[in-house]
């Protein structure tokens, strides 16, 4: 599948074919939907699903296409439908930060974004950063990881944080990294890593 189009404007009723094909959730989507749409659906509504729909994401500067239900999250799209596995699925409920990616220049939890809703917004995953990018390198320098499962999310949260605080104090770091959890206990290293990354990234900019 390599469609690069947004979900097409379609008559909602035609989507019911997909639903049957999918074979799940059919019990729940009963006559109610039809009736309601018959009353209320405006002709111009841009709709997709139920059932798989073509989705095009802009990941790390490249258009990437997949076909997935509108209910598929950005995280599941990245990890399962595509092969960007840097973002991890840990809580899957927007509480741990392991799935952090950048969307439209801001750090977000990919588990709490629908893939279909992420269309048209530039998405940056950790795979978009070079292996030796200054943030990851600072994490290595300060041994700011143990098992490493939270680390890609931490690195992307750092990227988001530094975008807003290019010249942070230690206190800023403590306040600005509160959306990510680590279980191994690497926060002391992370504090220093974020400060070093800030320094090195500014250096890179000046150079």
């Amino acid at each position: 599948m390599s469609s690069t189009k947004d979900p097409k404007t379609k008559n909602a009723v035609s989507r019911r074919g997909f639903l049957g094909g999918m074979g799940i959730g059919t019990g729940a989507v009963g006559a109610g939907l039809l009736e309601r749409e018959a009353i209320a659906s405006p002709a111009a509504a841009t709709v997709a699903g139920p059932g798989a729909a073509p989705i095009t994401l802009n990941i790390n500067g490249k258009p990437v296409s997949l076909t997935a239900e509108p209910s598929v999250t950005l995280l599941d799209a990245l990890r399962n439908h595509l092969d960007y596995t840097g973002a991890k699925k840990v809580c899957d409920r927007g509480t741990c930060g392991a799935c952090t990616v950048m969307m439209a220049g801001k750090s977000v939890y990919a588990c709490s974004v629908l893939a279909i809703d992420a269309q048209g917004k530039p998405i940056e995953t950790i795979e978009g950063l070079p292996v030796d990018n200054p943030i990851s390198t600072a994490f290595v320098n300060h041994d700011a990881q143990q098992c490493g499962y939270c680390t890609p999310g931490m690195v992307m949260a750092t990227k988001g944080f530094l975008a807003e605080h290019p010249n942070p104090t230690l206190e800023d770091v403590k306040n600005g990294m509160g959306g990510n959890l680590c279980r191994c206990g690497t926060y002391m290293g992370i504090r220093q890593a974020v400060l070093e990354a800030a320094k090195n990234m500014k250096g890179a900019k000046n150079g």
Binding site: A12, I24, P42, A45, V47, I116, D117
Partner: peptide, 17 residues
Amino acid sequence: QSFEYANPATVQEAVGL
């Protein structure tokens, strides 16, 4: 559960959904 995803551009359109 599967759902239909609608992407209205106006409030008018949205409330109609």
